[in-house]
């Protein structure tokens, strides 16, 4: 059943279902596209059964449309525009949250999709990279999100230092000199506890504590109920704390010391680190000034 003939029959069936014929995408070219997609995502030497199963998961109708657009078929472009032209701006507005930025973002992505840029003299159409793993609409949203995040990163590199301070980049400074303020045993314990977590658990923790996403949003991303994520977070927070205490005790701390180490406020650490970061001659001057003040005070008090 999973012979090459079956694979060939499946390709023909998928081609028929894709409606690629009306966009000038013939059987042979469609097969070439499928093979390229399979080569990209399947490990080398995959069995025919695996390839068949993989082909069946592809969004062939949208794949044919996107590839026909990339090939410059006018009918395909008309179909694409009638389906997604209005949605592109809505997607951009959802991501950028502001009208002019959204328009700018949508125009930029549209130019990429249309193939305005050229590489080695050839037109580069972004739609040629669509592989049909997810919906075309979802893919467009992802491409737009990538463009938005890239722009944000570029923009951040150009902001002034004052703006960086306002954004609270003190973490970056602390990070560079972290070893000066943190007990290495604590650092090792945290590292060990985090490494022991499953990828999904780390994703949940990072999304909640670092990205400040809500439990509902995380649950939606993982396709589970919000209460499941809430329980998981509760369990993770407890087990992490317990695990870290155990690790620190194992590294020679007393239980009380380990618990106190966990309550250290990062802001206090940043103050200590700034002290460490101060140039040596400044520290020396400060020390001398303090000693002079002390001598003066003793002199004015007189002998006992």
């Amino acid at each position: 059943m999973n012979s090459p003939d079956a694979l060939q029959a499946l390709v023909r069936e998928l081609h028929s279902a894709s409606g690629g014929e009306k966009f000038g995408l013939d059987d042979e070219r469609f097969q070439t596209i499928l093979e390229a997609v399979a080569a990209k995502y399947l490990p080398a030497g995959s069995s025919t059964a695996d390839v068949c199963a993989f082909y069946k998961t592809l969004r062939v109708e949208e794949l044919a449309l996107a590839r026909a657009c990339a090939a410059g078929d006018e009918a395909a472009w008309n179909a694409f525009l009638s389906r997604y032209r209005e949605k592109l701006y809505d997607m951009a507005l959802h991501i950028a949250k502001e009208s002019s930025a959204a328009r700018d973002l949508a125009d930029s992505v549209y130019a990429d999709l249309y193939g305005m840029s050229r590489r080695d003299g050839e037109r580069v159409c972004k739609l040629a990279s669509y592989a049909g793993r997810g919906s075309l609409e979802g893919w467009l949203r992802t491409v737009m999100a990538q463009e938005f995040v890239n722009r944000y990163r570029k923009q951040r590199r150009l902001v002034s230092l004052d703006e960086e301070n306002e954004e609270g980049v003190q973490f970056a400074a602390v990070e560079s000199e972290r070893s000066l303020g943190i007990d290495p045993r604590l650092e090792a314990a945290v590292g060990a506890a985090l490494t022991a977590l499953a990828a999904e658990d780390r994703f949940v923790l990072a999304s909640y504590f670092l990205d400040e996403r809500t439990l509902a949003e995380i649950a939606r991303t993982l396709g589970v109920h919000e209460s499941t994520i809430s329980r998981k977070m509760d369990k993770l927070a407890k087990s992490l704390r317990k695990q870290m205490v155990v690790e620190m005790v194992r590294r020679g701390m007393s239980r009380q010391q380990a618990k106190e180490a966990l309550e250290v406020d990062v802001r206090e650490l940043s103050v200590n680190i700034r002290e460490h970061l101060a140039p040596a001659h400044v520290q020396e001057n400060e020390r001398q000034a303090f000693q002079e003040q002390e001598v003066k005070a003793r002199t004015s008090e007189g002998p006992a």
């Binding site: 602390v174 590292g191 250290v264 990062v266």
Partner: peptide, 17 residues
């Protein structure tokens, strides 16, 4: 839900960046 210690969050940010 009890929050994670700040030191853990900070370390977390560093480790997962």
């Amino acid at each position: 839900m009890k929050p994670l210690p700040k030191i853990v969050q900070w370390q977390f940010q560093k480790a997962l960046s």
